[in-house]
Simulated scan of single mutants.
Amino acid sequence: MKENRGPIGIFDSGYGGLTILTSIRRLMPEYDYLYLGDNARAPYGNRSFEIVYEFTLQSVKKLFDMGCQLVILGCNTASAKALRSIQQNDLPNIDPTRRVLGVIRPTVEMIGDITKSRHVGIVATRGTIDSQSYLLEINKLFPDITVSGIACPMWVPLIENNEFESDGADYFVKKYIYALMEKDSKIDSIILGCTHYPLLIDKIRKYTPANIELITQGNFVAKSLKDYFIRHADMEERCTKGGATTFLTTESVEKFKESAAVFIKDTKIDVESIILK
């Protein structure tokens, strides 16, 4: 009987999930990782629930086919629009022993210990904001917290076009942060609800009041995964340990390497171009 073991899969529609991968590898470097970026069809932020679900499921199945027993959706839009359906409707038929996890829940779980004013802001893609996933999840765990969100549709294009340090980025960061603060001046914590946004954090700080804490997701997702392995030793044993990372992209290898260099410091990465269907 073939042993069911493989790398930890990490999926994102674009490149932002590389910030999640980086944090997880920093905390748990001993594991093998397989990153899949659906870069040719990115961004997902403005796509419908049905299309995000379809594309995300295709990627999850691909990672499963390549041996992953556990897949993390390192994408807020996919976590918001596809995770629940995949967990509840698809996994029982594909393989009930495998798991798919997202990035929203680990971020939400820690917010209760961070906010003092009990007023929290969310900046994210339009798809994540429209899904109200953060609002619903926070209200489940912390019904006393008031949540205000705003979509920032220009931030991902700025980052993926390597313009996040430009003067143009200042304009759009200031615009959205000021709009969020106008919605609720009592906010004392802002969740960066897109895995691209840590690259903009210096500019976000520039236009955010000094008393407000900016919350990036990588470290929380990494810690949550480590805790998950402690609680689920059977799954931890099914994740191989060789310290290797492989990358898959639906774009060209050259384009992926060029764009990924903005997010990760690896000088040499093993990349394969694939077609999802």
Score class of each variant (00 low, 15 high):
Asn4Asp: 13
Phe11Pro: 02
Ile20Gly: 04
Leu21Phe: 08
Ile24Ser: 05
Leu27Pro: 05
Met28Pro: 08
Pro29Asn: 11
Asp32Lys: 05
Tyr35Glu: 09
Arg41Asn: 15
Arg41Lys: 09
Ala42Asp: 03
Gly45Leu: 03
Phe49His: 08
Tyr53Cys: 02
Thr56His: 06
Gln58Val: 11
Val60Asp: 10
Met66Arg: 09
Cys68Gly: 10
Ile72Asp: 08
Thr77Val: 07
Ala82Thr: 01
Arg84Gly: 06
Ser85Gln: 02
Gln88Asp: 15
Asp90Asn: 12
Asp90Glu: 14
Val108His: 00
Glu109Ile: 13
Ala124Glu: 13
Ile129Phe: 07
Asp130Val: 06
Leu141Ile: 15
Ile150His: 00
Ala151Pro: 12
Pro157His: 02
Pro157Lys: 07
Glu165Ser: 11
Gly168Ile: 05
Phe172Ile: 05
Val173Lys: 04
Tyr176Lys: 01
Tyr176Ser: 12
Ile177Val: 08
Asp184Lys: 01
Tyr197Met: 07
Leu199Ser: 11
Leu200Phe: 01
Leu200Trp: 02
Leu200Ser: 00
Asp202His: 04
Ile204Leu: 14
Tyr207Pro: 04
Phe220Gly: 00
Lys223Ile: 09
Ser224Glu: 14
Leu225Pro: 14
Lys226Pro: 05
Lys226Ala: 14
Tyr228Gln: 07
Tyr228Phe: 06
Arg231His: 11
Ala233Glu: 14
Glu236Ile: 01
Phe247Ile: 08
Thr249Tyr: 03
Glu254Leu: 13
Lys257Ile: 13
Glu258Ile: 13
Val262Ile: 15
Thr267Glu: 06
Glu272Phe: 03
Leu276Thr: 00
